[in-house]
Nucleic acid binder design. Structure first.
Length: 349
DNA sequence: AATCGGGTCAACCGCCGATCC
DNA sequence: CGGATCGGCGGTTGACCCGAT
């Protein structure tokens, strides 16, 4: 009759995660891969419910996450997409590869909503044209309908693409060039390393004794951290490095990537070289050719990827729909203004 | 230096469709 | 088939931080 309970409600720990817990969780997922969250607390000894483990992983520890410092372009995208999709944060997040829905939601609630209200206040002072807003609403309705249809179509395409590897998908479009950015998993790796680095460094900062044990014992005893090797295939000094009993200084250099990697990623890595963070290799970041880890496409292990699409393919073979062109064309001033109007006048949603 | 208030964000809560037994 | 649980999602909360007083 049904499944056994995922975890006991009694004795479940709540509140902020400690670095120790993070390391345990990351180690476990490196070894076993994400998924089967029910088993995570029992197998790791974490006093967390499965849901909490999943959330911690997806919103914070998962590779490829970029946190904070939303760019102006990301802001625009969020505003546009929120206007189009409403508060469907997961859907919006699928267009912003490195952002989590939670992050986007928070950013919307804390920053963008206020920003838009300000603009709205400004706007209403300047003009009072109810008739034009009515006509815009009609257009908005049509657009939303179109988007919904598109979204449904997209979902179908996505589903089919897992089998026949089609290249028709809309997220991850570079708006300035109307081409798909080649998100090498240098990004992914850098971000994940950043995350792990952060938690390790915090841990060391907070408890010097613990740092000692990390340096000398804990990581090597944590089943997979001693196998944390990096092969970027680039000119990076980190290539094929193996993390064994790292010193704090060693960790600093090992994880010295920062989050502002966007600009020069493509220079340091060819399009076909990617770093895959797979569970099978037990924490080893390895280079796989022709397989890119990207949002919206999950492999059998739950890792996101896009298979068989080279940079060239991305740039030349992927047609943009009219809607996508419209959505991402930054130079379309009129559309921009209309979108701002949508974002401001959201009552109709 | 202490207090207050607003901002931020990680994490929890509750709901719902999917899945399992 | 039906009940129980899982996994994902959006909304909300509360602890923490920081600037103003």
């Amino acid at each position: 009759m049904g499944r056994p309970p995922c975890c006991d409600k009694i004795g479940v720990k709540k509140g902020p995660w400690t670095p120790e817990e993070d390391i345990i969780l990351v180690s476990y997922i490196q070894e076993h891969g994400p998924g089967n969250w029910r088993a995570v607390p029992t197998n790791t000894g974490l006093l967390r419910c499965s849901k909490s483990c999943r959330l911690r992983w997806t919103n914070y520890l998962r590779p490829g996450i970029k946190r904070g410092n939303f760019t102006e372009h990301e802001e625009k995208m969020i505003i546009h997409l929120q206007a189009l999709l409403g508060n469907r944060w997961a859907a919006i997040a699928s267009y912003l590869p490195q952002r989590t829905d939670n992050d986007i939601k928070n950013y919307w609630n804390t920053h963008l909503q206020k920003k838009l209200k300000k603009i709205q206040g400004h706007d209403q002072k300047g003009k009072s044209s109810s008739s034009s807003s009515q006509s815009i609403s009609k257009g908005q309705w049509e657009r939303r309908l179109q988007t919904d249809i598109h979204t449904a179509k997209q979902a179908l395409c996505d589903a089919l693409s897992l089998n026949k590897k089609t290249t028709d998908f809309s997220p991850n479009i570079n708006p300035s060039t109307n081409s798909f950015p080649v998100q090498t998993s240098t990004n992914t790796y850098a971000s994940s390393a950043d995350n792990i680095s952060r938690l390790l460094q915090n841990w060391m900062k907070n408890s010097p004794k613990s740092s000692q044990s990390i340096s000398n014992n804990s990581i090597t005893s944590q089943s997979s951290f001693n196998n944390l090797s990096i092969g970027t295939g680039s000119s990076s000094s980190l290539s094929e490095g193996t993390l064994n009993a790292p010193t704090p200084e060693g960790l600093d250099s090992l994880f010295s990537f920062n989050s502002s990697y966007n600009s020069d990623v493509s220079q340091s890595m060819s399009a076909d070289e990617v770093v895959a963070f797979t569970p099978e290799n037990a924490g080893i970041f390895q280079v796989e050719s022709n397989k890119q880890y990207l949002p919206n496409f999950k492999d059998e292990n739950g890792f996101l990827f896009q298979e068989g699409i080279s940079k060239q393919n991305l740039e030349t073979e992927v047609p943009l729909t009219l809607l996508e062109n419209w959505l991402f064309d930054d130079s379309n001033v009129q559309t921009q203004e209309e979108l701002m109007g949508i974002g401001i006048g959201m009552e109709w949603l």
